[in-house]
Design a protein around this nucleic acid. Structure first.
Length: 815
RNA sequence: GCCCGGGUGCCGGAACGGCAGACGGAGGUGCCUUAAAAGCACCGGCCCGAAAGGGCGUGUGGGUUCGAAUCCCACCCCGGGCACCA
């Protein structure tokens, strides 16, 4: 008998599967139900590491399971190939980003092949291919036409190191997500996608996400950040200017004792001049402009500068002083807030710092607060006081009552504010899809006509860092005729955020060779929505939100008939090392291929999927630290499977019923575990069955049927071993991966003999073997007759006997 | 601060409210081997006990229940997300 050698088995089947075209999704076949199994496509930076191995082992198991259950499976792969890492790596190495990117893609592709992933390779594409980004640009133009792509001067997050603007989402704790450099503020004209138009729908349609992890849904909700309240109009006493504020607490309007503007508020300089404080205000504005956003955000000081003017409190006519302070942000609400120190902690601190009055207008019942002695704001429920007509009104009703009154008085209205901002998509970098816009002196922003797409990214560009987009330095790219009038004009020199590329790639897989449109609506209708999306939780917000947004836009354009692309989402955990996330810079990145070469792809998949629940993080250091020297348990198990199955096929003896029952129980358990992505549990059941087969063989009995089922169930986890045994040892002609997933007979899956646990007062005192069909009376009788139990019952009075036939009897005594 | 997760042997982890620790790892003992590795067999929560057996055990404290790792309340600790959001 031959020993298990993955090094010869695995490459052999890679070649066979490709020759047989085993994993091609069939666009025409409607006899089988479709199943779109999507894995978040990888970024081609270096070769595959253990994080890839985890994500794709899980995704591949899902796809293979669906295939064996009779689905027509679409399981595609591609590369998210534009973006900063490629550009940075290229600058560092002095080569072209294209070269670096395509080399990495080649390497990852060959590694995926070696691992035997069940991808339909005929659909592969890269987002940096002109055939792909042509359609990214096409989508940009469609959004532009619909008013969903627009340019505005905006304070941006600027990374001084990467020399580019970052989206809010790419700023982590005030630092650049990529390089960790503190981000500073810079006002630039930028392209945005108007995702805020879809804020409410993005929130509402969360209901259509039938199977997403709760935490991801929560993150999406928090990111959209809907707040309900009121918009109230105030008037500046000295100038008559009107100012609107948003508040979630209109019931505290009578407690307003001051008013604060953000420095960027359009009225600020005018008011400062009127109030005679222009110099101080200008100084503060300049200081803030030069201050990195980090410092501004972390400032806990309540500094502020008086504007020298007053605002008239809309509800009672009182005049209160106005200030400019950094704690008020132009980006949220209206950029101006009413100061209610008694009921907002920030306002409280500001009032104390500037000697402003504090007025309690909401009193907690039972323990009234006193402005003099308060040590912090009271921001909970209570009864309104000092509030004119509203004295005595209780929260939470008070908020609605005041809002209604404001509307009647024409002083305000109910309002909703979202935390979500528009999506900043322009990048002043080279390695991305050029924005297909031409700037004409006479016609402004003109979209590149569809026939002229793609706007090719020129190869001969000096892409090293500079203050502006590298494309701006390429005259041949920049200078172009206006599509409308033909006069000399300039191309837009920004490129698109890579999140734009990745927000629609799953549509392209449905018809990847389409040269007339981004995707064929009929094919998309055929394959989408995605049946199971697998990927990392690091994309819980950005990628998923953008994809959901774009799908809704395409829906509104009449191109797709659904509004959510991924109703089911599964997040794998991260593979970490020694408690820290793996990264090249930390030097703890564990690459996948050395393991594969040494012990096989099957062993790697099993090691990772067996390590714990799929959604939990895996610490490689704890799971297989010394894997290149020590034989992994999964490789050893596969060796035993190989030996046992081979032996089972050579034996004529009949299979004992006990093993048949065990097999059916295992099929049931593994099927259920796979349906819920409980790979670790499924694999453990397969190991138990292996042990059962081995002891059966040891007793000289047969195990062919059990072995056959085991091999099939191994398919999603260890595709090579399964195939080898299925075709070679078991002698089947067609691939195990297109065989029908084994079914179980519920009658056989039920245990025949079970352990009846006998408890006395809740403690286990005996275990009896009984027929699984034993009824309540029988169990009760057997339990009461048990020697071991009686030793604890004697001398006591039996008060109650709980029977859960055939598993448990609890004899409850007293005394 | 707010919002999510999660605390089970030495380790990864199992466990429809009903035998806690399945299945593995690390370790130990034995077999095989000149030897090592590999393989195979057995042991493996803690305490008492020679054993039979008993007691204690799922972060802490309480509660519900015949019965709680599991349900409820409070607290402690760890991880993640958001964070001057008006």
């Amino acid at each position: 008998m031959q020993k298990y050698d993955p090094g010869t088995i695995e490459p052999k089947w890679v070649a066979a599967w490709e020759a047989e075209d085993l994993y091609r999704a069939d666009d025409e076949d409607t006899s089988r139900p479709k199943f779109y199994a999507l894995d978040m496509f990888p970024y081609p930076s270096g070769d595959l590491h253990m994080g890839h191995a985890e994500a794709f082992s899980g995704g591949d198991a899902v796809a293979r399971f669906a295939l064996m259950r009779g689905h027509n499976v679409l399981h595609p792969i591609g590369w998210d190939a534009f973006g900063l890492p490629a550009e940075n790596a290229a600058i560092k190495r002095g080569i072209h980003p294209k070269e670096w990117t395509y080399a990495n893609i080649d390497q990852q592709r060959s590694s995926f092949r070696r691992m035997g992933m069940s991808f339909d390779w005929s659909r592969q594409f890269n987002t940096c291919d002109p055939e792909y980004y042509r359609w990214t640009q096409w989508l940009f133009v469609r959004l532009f036409e619909r008013g969903l792509a627009y340019r505005k001067l905006a304070p941006t997050n600027w990374c001084p190191k990467d020399q580019t603007v970052l989206a809010n989402e790419q700023v982590i704790n005030g630092r650049c997500e990529r390089c960790g450099t503190p981000v500073i503020r810079k006002d630039l004209t930028q392209w945005f996608f108007k995702i805020t138009d879809y804020a409410q729908r993005l929130l509402d349609d969360v209901d259509e996400l039938v199977d997403w992890p709760d935490r991801v849904i929560t993150m999406q909700r928090n990111w959209i950040g809907r707040s309900e309240g009121a918009a109230v109009e105030f008037e500046i006493a000295e100038t008559g200017d009107k100012v609107e504020v948003f508040t979630t607490r209109p019931d505290t309007l009578w407690g307003v004792t001051f008013f604060v503007f953000a420095v960027e508020h359009p009225l600020v300089m005018k008011l400062a001049e009127a109030g005679g404080t222009a110099a101080e205000v200008k100084a503060m504005a300049d200081a803030l402009q030069a201050t990195p956003l980090t410092n501004r955000e972390q400032a806990e000081s309540r500094e502020g500068v008086p504007l020298g003017v007053h605002v008239v409190n809309t509800v009672n006519g009182e005049k209160v002083p106005c200030f400019v302070a950094p704690y008020v942000l132009m980006e949220y609400g209206t950029g101006a807030v009413m100061g209610v120190p008694a009921h907002d902690q920030r306002d409280f601190e500001f009032a104390r710092a500037h000697g402003l009055p504090i007025r309690v207008v909401v009193q907690p019942e039972g323990e009234p607060r006193d402005a003099e002695t308060m040590t912090g704001a009271y921001d909970h429920e209570g009864v309104m006081v000092n509030s004119g007509p509203f004295d005595g009104v209780r929260s939470p009703e008070s908020v609605g009552a005041v809002t209604k009154w404001l509307e009647e008085q024409g002083k305000g209205r109910a309002a909703i504010t979202y935390r979500l901002r528009d999506w900043l998509i322009s990048r002043q970098r080279y390695w991305g899809a050029p924005i297909p816009i031409i700037h004409c002196e006479d016609h402004g922003e003109v979209a590149v006509p569809e026939a002229d797409l793609p706007v090719l990214l020129p190869d001969d560009v000096d892409f090293r860092l500079g203050g502006e987009s590298p494309l701006a330095r390429h005259d041949g790219f920049v200078n172009v005729a206006c599509p409308t009038c033909g006069k000399p004009a300039r191309r837009d020199t920004d490129t698109m955020d890579t999140f734009v590329d990745s927000s629609w790639y799953y549509f392209r897989y449905c018809s990847p060779d389409d040269t007339a449109e981004p995707f064929e609506p009929d094919r998309v209708a055929r394959w989408m929505p995605v049946d199971q999306y697998t990927g990392g939780v690091e994309h819980a917000i950005l990628h998923l939100l953008y994809s959901r947004f774009l799908t809704k836009v395409l829906h509104d354009m009449g191109m797709v008939g659904f509004t959510e692309p991924f109703p089911r989402l599964m997040n794998q955990g991260q593979v970490i090392f020694g408690g820290a996330s793996m990264s090249k810079s930390k030097g703890n990145l564990v690459e996948a291929m050395p393991f594969v070469e040494r012990w096989g792809s099957d062993a790697l998949r099993l090691t990772i999927l067996f390590a714990g629940p799929f959604g939990d993080d895996i610490d490689w250091k704890l799971i297989a630290p010394d894997h290149l020297h020590r034989r992994p348990a999964m490789n050893a198990w596969l060796g035993r499977v190989h030996a046992a199955v081979s032996e089972a096929t050579e034996r004529d003896a009949s299979q004992p019923e006990e093993l048949t029952r065990h097999t059916h129980r295992t099929i049931k358990a593994v099927t259920e575990a796979l349906e819920r992505f409980r790979f670790n549990v499924a694999i453990s059941k397969l190991q138990v069955l292996t042990n059962g087969i081995r002891s059966t063989l040891e007793r000289g009995e047969g195990a062919r049927d059990a072995a056959s089922a085991l091999v099939q169930m191994l398919g999603p986890f260890a595709p090579f071993m399964a195939e080898e045994l299925w075709r070679d040892a078991l002698g089947n002609g067609k691939s195990v991966h297109v065989s029908s997933w084994p079914s179980f007979d519920p009658e056989l899956a039920r245990e025949e003999r079970v352990t009846l646990v006998v408890q006395v007062d809740g403690k286990v005192r005996d275990r009896l073997e009984v027929d699984a069909a034993a009824d309540e009376a029988t169990c009760r009788e057997l339990a009461l007759a048990s020697e071991n139990a009686r030793r604890f019952v004697d001398g006591r009075q039996v008060r109650q006997v709980i029977v859960r036939a055939p598993r448990l009897v609890n004899i409850v005594t007293s005394g």
